[in-house]
Simulated scan of single mutants.
Amino acid sequence: MYPLLTVNLDHMRKNIRTVRGLCAAHGISVTAVTKVFRGDPRIAGVLAEEGMTMLGDSRVANLARMREVPAEKWLIRPPMLTEIPDLVRFGDASLNSEMCVVRAISEECLRQGRTHRVILMADLGDIREGYIDYDELIEAAGETDRLPGVELYGIGVNLTCFSFIQYDTEKLTLLADLRRRTEEAVGHPLQIVSGGNSAAVDLMLRGGIPEGVNNLRLGESVLFGKERAHYQYLPDTYADVFTLECEIVELKEKPSLPWGTVGVDSYGKKPEFTDRGEHRMKAVCALGKQDFDAETTVPCDPGIIMLGASSDHLMLDVTDSEHSYKVGDTVKLQLGYFSTMRAFTSEYVTKQYTGAAD
């Protein structure tokens, strides 16, 4: 049964409502990003029930898992040529930056008798996906608009995920201007101008998203109640939607410092340790990096110090806890975004849900 990931659906609903309301007040539609939970249909269904009419994921396999969820489904990573038949079958829209891929989508749509919506991406400085030559983007929009089987849905941008270039009004004003130029080129309005991810929420709340940008692709803020520019929790949201319990398999008094010659870890880095004395109560738990991310995880017990993890062991210092732990007890952890993603990906982690009804 352990490790055990618990999803609090009631708290999730509250976060969804809060963030959707904030975005609506600023004229922003939301594409809820589902990759952190691998497109789990039960969670995706909650998003749809709470008014999220567009869902986005970076893997076609997850779009297929959500096939019965009543929402428009976007692939939010540029498609692989080899997955286009499944993309057209399970996805309604996709983010694109290569015309050879858009042409292949068009051909597959004709084969399947379907229509697929295309959003063309502009690179505004993060040097990840997107056109850096904006004239080329305009030309691509014109060709997309003429292709059979596909619909030019809009344009978009992504920042902060690779080079961590931050969102600002100047960059999104450039995106809004690209909207104007694209609309002039194709002769009709674009439905979607997608201005980014949860790192753009703070800018939105400060009134910094310009007119013409009308969509954000949000995962962390919707599910965790957190904006990513300053990593602050939004008012009226819950931070405990995803928690993970792990079992203690060893509990012994040990020194805080190791002894012997310290080498480097798997990443070539030499670990560092804090001297807290010779007599510390250490717990070893049956949980490791294969199942969670220690850097984005916090123990729910404030008296526990997280010391670190190997691939399948988690080391904790429980000396200062008010609770008296023993072998076989469990420790509850509050998960952040990347830790939740890893827990959902691990087949060794059991998943359970609480508070499904509304």
Rank of each mutant, 00 (worst) to 15 (best):
S256T: 01
I155S: 00
M315T: 11
V101F: 11
S163F: 14
R114G: 04
S346Q: 08
R89S: 12
D40V: 03
F224T: 05
D312Y: 12
L55Y: 00
G263T: 14
R20G: 04
L87S: 10
Q232W: 15
L257W: 11
P271Y: 10
Q166P: 06
L335R: 08
G149R: 12
S321E: 00
A356T: 05
A200M: 13
C246T: 15
K171L: 12
P302V: 13
N158D: 06
L205Y: 10
V150P: 05
D177R: 13
T160I: 12
L22D: 01
T350A: 14
V222C: 07
M281D: 02
S106E: 02
E72R: 15
G39W: 01
T173N: 01
V201T: 11
F242A: 06
G142Q: 08
T173H: 02
I192A: 09
K289F: 13
E136S: 09
E83V: 15
M80R: 08
F242G: 03
I165G: 09
V349L: 04
S346R: 12
Y153H: 11
R89E: 15
V241R: 08
G39D: 00
G260S: 08
P302I: 13
L55C: 00
I119K: 08
W259V: 12
I132S: 14
R17A: 08
M66R: 06
I16M: 03
P258C: 05
K326H: 07
M54W: 05
L172R: 00
Q290S: 14
R17Y: 04
G113A: 06
G260R: 06
Q352V: 14
E50G: 00
A343D: 04
V327G: 03
E136T: 08
L81S: 15
L190D: 04
R13M: 01
S97A: 14
L159C: 02
K73P: 01
L4F: 05
R111Q: 11
D57K: 00
T243C: 14
V249M: 13
G51D: 01
P235E: 11
D135C: 03
K269A: 10
L159I: 03
E151D: 04
P148S: 04
V101E: 05
I16S: 02
I165K: 10
T354Y: 06
G196T: 14
K14A: 12
S256Y: 03
L55A: 00
L75C: 08
L287Y: 08
E136F: 10
A24Y: 06
R146E: 09
D265R: 12
F90G: 02
E68Q: 08
L172A: 01
G149W: 06
S339H: 09
T350D: 13
T297P: 07
A239H: 14
Y153G: 00
P258I: 09
Y167W: 06
I304K: 04
I28P: 00
L203Y: 05
T144P: 02
H188F: 04
T6V: 11
I132E: 12
G21C: 07
C100R: 14
I165V: 15
V298H: 13
D133R: 14
P210Q: 03
